Simulated assay, not measured.
Amino acid sequence: MDTLTVLFYLFSAVLVFAAFRVITAKSPVSAALHLVLAFFNAAGVWMLLQAEFLAISLVLVYVGAVMVLFLFVVMMLDINIDSMRQGFWKVFPLAGFVGVVIALEMAFVLMSGFRLSEAKPFAPELANVANTKALGIDLYTNYLYPVQIAAVILLVGIIAAIALTHRNRKESKAIDPAVAVRTKKADRLRIVKMDAVVEQPSSDNAKEGGQA
């Protein structure tokens, strides 16, 4: 057994254990941390398969951005785990059946990709090119239009999210920076001249002062 095989079984064992702990951990923070561990081991498996781009993307995008945001939200919210776990065993048979069906469907679809007899060879010009560079060449040649369409859809989604979250709301206390910059001194402070007013002592205070 060579080193690559040992590393593969090591990464796979830790990955399976971390994935199991994700769905069995009582604390959502512990589940999220085990999910981070699962992502790192999946990236290690992809590195063994010479899929450097997928491994780097998994670590940077999911571990570095998505999971950090997820942990921030989970730790900021006060989630009642006991109320969420009520009725778990009632829906467990149906959930298990749906999970088995999904696993069989994925196995049926993915097993065809492991048939070496039907695998298509790489193009001759990509035979001596690094994996990441070959992926970039393939994306921007054979799949140029799908990549551009996906980029436009993501751009529209980003603009829609910004437009929905930055609407003018009545309860919002946000100010317009342009209006704040154009504000003059006279709009902030107004000096008003008034005559001095001396308060006259009341009759009761005058009597008390005379008796003293």
Rank of each mutant, 00 (worst) to 15 (best):
L144K: 13
M1F: 07
K185N: 11
L49R: 10
R167C: 01
V59L: 14
P93F: 10
M67A: 14
L71Q: 06
L37R: 09
A160R: 08
K207Y: 01
L139K: 11
V45S: 07
V6G: 11
F70H: 02
L164C: 04
R85V: 02
Y62K: 11
K120N: 00
G87M: 07
A13Y: 03
Y62R: 05
L94I: 12
L155F: 12
N168F: 05
S202L: 02
R167H: 03
S27L: 02
K184H: 04
A178L: 13
F88P: 00
V22Q: 03
A25L: 02
A31D: 08
A95Q: 11
F108H: 13
G113A: 09
A123N: 08
V68Q: 12
V45H: 01
I81S: 12
R169P: 00
F88T: 12
T3S: 15
I153Y: 08
V36N: 15
L110I: 05
T132V: 12
M47P: 00
E208H: 05
V16A: 13
L33H: 08
V181P: 01
K193E: 11
K170G: 13
G113P: 00
H166M: 07
F53R: 14
F114N: 10
Y62W: 04
F70D: 04
V101L: 15
M106D: 04
F97K: 14
F11C: 11
A151M: 08
V73F: 11
F20I: 07
T24H: 05
L54W: 02
S202P: 00
D195S: 11
V152W: 08
M106N: 06
V100H: 02
L7M: 10
F40L: 12
A150M: 11
P28V: 03
T24W: 02
M111I: 09
L69Q: 10
A163M: 05
K120R: 10
D82H: 07
L4H: 09
G210P: 01
V6S: 15
A95G: 09
A42E: 09
L10C: 04
V181Q: 10
P93C: 10
L33E: 12
G44Q: 09
V156G: 10
A18W: 01
K90D: 08
V181D: 09
P28L: 06
K173V: 03
K184W: 02
V36S: 14
L33K: 15
G44E: 05
V179H: 08
A55C: 05
D187Q: 15
V147Y: 06
I23Q: 04
L71C: 07
P124D: 14
T3D: 10
K207A: 01
A150R: 05
L155K: 05
L104F: 12
L71W: 04
Y143V: 00
K90C: 03
G99T: 08
I56Q: 06
Q148D: 01
F8T: 06
Y140D: 04
D187Y: 02
S12V: 00
A55F: 02
G209L: 06
V152H: 08
